[in-house]
Amino acid sequence: MEDRGVALEVEDLTVAYSDQPVLWDIDLVVQAGDKMAIVGPNGAGKSTLIKAAMGLVPSVAGEVRVFGRPFAKGRGEIAYVPQRSSLEWDFPTDVLDVVTMGTYGSLGWFRRPGAAERDRARKALDEVTMGAFERRPIAQLSGGQQQRVLLARALVQEAPILMLDEPFQGVDAPTEQAIVAVLDRLSDDGKTVIVVHHDLQTVPEYFDSVLLLNVRAIESGPVGDVFTEENLRLTFGGRVGVLAQLAEAETGH
């Protein structure tokens, strides 16, 4: 992969909740155009890492640089797709409205989203093949549909970096394929995609590089180099078995 520059750089990042470390001294470099998976056991700090990278949780040490500059919220460089379950889906609004929320960052105070913003939202919806659901109340969406709506909301921001938190959790196969297709397209366009991923089986297939995380960064780099049984064992603490065989099969290690 050509070197298009470093999109995201995390250095010595430590995050703690009342002196309980959730992330210790994390170093990470993500190249522009990369598709990176973050994997690790529950409680390993995966969600925390991407939230800390965006400044949504405070860190005790270290820093984050986006395209060489210290990260500042609102510069529109990172678009965030949170976990589906963290939202109250019984909210009275429709799909188009949620996606349009992605344009709020560029609108500033007091301005309403207009036709231009809604068109951008429609385009994003088409990209995730939800164009027909514009007017659907979000309370009536299935899990996969919810996920695609959140992805569209991030797409609309047209940010160079996308961070997704467990986007494939509990979605049906067609949705998963649709999302993967979108991520591939983004990466081809030079956008950087960072995904907290829960399914080890699909890591080599969907991603170029991977970060193995368990409070500490165990290892990060291209999937072929890093996704080994040894590293998986270090990350998951032993119960890797079947998965290790899979990793071996995929990477030939």
Binding site: P21, W24, G40, N214, R216, G237
Partner: peptide
Amino acid sequence: DAVIGFSD
């Protein structure tokens, strides 16, 4: 010792 991770 300080760095104790999690295991599933």
